[in-house]
Design a protein around this nucleic acid. Sequence first.
DNA 1: TCACGCCTCCTCCCGAAGGAGGAGGCCCTC
DNA 2: GAGGGCCTCCTCCTTCGGGAGGAGGCGTGA
Lengths: 226, 226
Amino acid sequence: MHTLMVADDHPLFREAIAAVIEAGLPDSRLLEAESLDQALRHAAACAELDLVLLDLGLPDASGLEGLQALRAAHPWLPVAILSADQERRTILDALDLGAVGYIPKSTPRRDLLAALAQLLEGQVYLPPEIMRRPAVPQPSIGAGMPTPGPRFAELTDKQLEVLLRLSRGASNKVIARELDIAETTVKTHVSAILRKLGVPGRVQAILAANDADLEALLAERHAASR
Amino acid sequence: MHTLMVADDHPLFREAIAAVIEAGLPDSRLLEAESLDQALRHAAACAELDLVLLDLGLPDASGLEGLQALRAAHPWLPVAILSADQERRTILDALDLGAVGYIPKSTPRRDLLAALAQLLEGQVYLPPEIMRRPAVPQPSIGAGMPTPGPRFAELTDKQLEVLLRLSRGASNKVIARELDIAETTVKTHVSAILRKLGVPGRVQAILAANDADLEALLAERHAASR
DNA sequence: TCACGCCTCCTCCCGAAGGAGGAGGCCCTC
DNA sequence: GAGGGCCTCCTCCTTCGGGAGGAGGCGTGA
């Protein structure tokens, strides 16, 4: 027998959560709050609360302020964020403020139930699809700027030419025609690019390339070679 | 069959980990590294590596530098920290740098196994006893931007969900798992997306999607449906 | 001169991607 | 009740993408 509270200003969403919990965690009790204020009052009144699911963006609390307030008032109360926000930064900030978990609202029902079960067991839950994404652009920890990121510098000129066309969505065949080399040669270059960038496929190479200015890098090299 | 690597400079500790894994994850392979350098070489040489357990305080890498280096060299390689350090701040910094989990060395054997299993399943693991200690798309729907471009408006909600993941570089298989539908269904959706956007392949769909703010569009729809 | 890196191309092989075509279920509207 | 749109899943088939492994030519620097 667990007691949960969902704090969200959308009645329909609260209803949906209630339905999920009723179906998946049969003998649980669910409190509902439509504002931070009400959530704080519920928390004060109900001693056996096991978990709070807190929406970001309640009318009376912008962003993570609600979490902060709840944590300050009830440091022992486990609070998980339930939000539409999928930003990695937001999740880390929430953890920083003491959240025990973070559940994106886009989480499919079965994963949501698994997450709740995990949280009620005393574990921590974070959305794998976000936290396990490679994107780590800003380390910002000490050390000036080694920022190797993807090592475009390691690519040879030819490989950069290939990557440039890759990033524009060209197929191996098209690249071969444009550079007037055999398709097998293009594949060799592509393989080398994937290896050097440490990505598993051309799609990821394109996404990485889109974060950099390849044309500038190429122009720079051409200038340097003159 | 999983392949793991433990990077720790204490032979006895590596031995202990090996024993735990051998007993608890019978058909796994374990690589051992006693320095960051060796870990990097192993990672480069072994493609089927599923998880790296990285100690903080290797001789050739102080603190989280090793994690940073490993992440930079192999962005797609899941790395979990295995450390004696129990500071909340350290854990948050490790996550910040892209670690998929954090296991204190004081973790009892059975919890350690559970954590490894969770990590190998693609989840995130954090030590509850530390993290649970008391301690946005805000789309700005300013009306003014119709931005039809490619006809994203013609896509159904589900197709938008698929396109969103597509644009992050996910394969059909991954999308299927995230949305909890069959891979064939994903293919159906992808085919519909390609047809509606008038592009010849997923790569072009991604490039088109990157020029638009899909999250905002999705949030807008969800808001409208309430 | 010899080694090394780069570019070029090849074959064999396998898994991912995507089209064609069909089918059942659900829900809404006419 | 009969469409029709959407979501779901299937099979069969082709092409594309990428790894493994090998090989030859060319230029530069030790």
